[in-house]
Amino acid sequence: MKIETKNITVMALFSAVAIIFSYIEAILPPIWSAIPGIKVGLANIVTVTLLYKFSIKEASIVAFIRIIIIALLFGNAMTLIYSIAGFVLSVAIMDILKRTNLFSTVGVSIAGGVFHNLGQIIVAMLLLQTKEIGYYMIVLAITGTVAGILIGIASNLMLKYSNKLRL
């Protein structure tokens, strides 16, 4: 992707959409607070969309802009580490699975959701120096799958309409 006015604008537009998604989720009450880590992760719609529309590079640039701005606005150093770990693992597995061309957008997004949770669990294990949180992985695998299905469907719609707008 070349540095052209149009590309810069498209990246800025998607960054704004991603930040708005994160903002909406930050102001909504937690869906089910009995289990930690349950979040749909609306901003991942933008990550999946950009991964399919362009490549892992564009998806990562926009995600890092979003993660840093959201951390500055609502989070702290801790939430920043969790977000980055979750994102890096999820985007890596999604890029690998997308390249195999064996799975649909929804399948790729499911793996992304589960690996996002896995990344956060690993960070929690390291930060809290306790391996026992691995216990939660079964719950987070299920919620990651559900979130991934929703994100995958939404990303398909986003791809369809952004193509219509010729973005």
């Binding site: 699975l97 064996l102 799975f103 649909s104 929804v106 399948g107 499911i110 793996a111 589960v114 691995g134 216990y135 992985m137 079964i138 695998a141 299920i142 799958t145």
Partner: peptide, 27 residues
């Protein structure tokens, strides 16, 4: 092609859930 991918998606979900279930049971 879409159907094949849908089937692969299901296999993927199966693998993910059974791996985490195995991990949980071992635990």
């Amino acid at each position: 092609d879409g159907l094949k991918k849908g089937k692969n998606d299901l296999i993927l979900v199966g693998i993910i859930l059974s791996l985490s279930l195995v991990g949980f049971l071992i635990f």
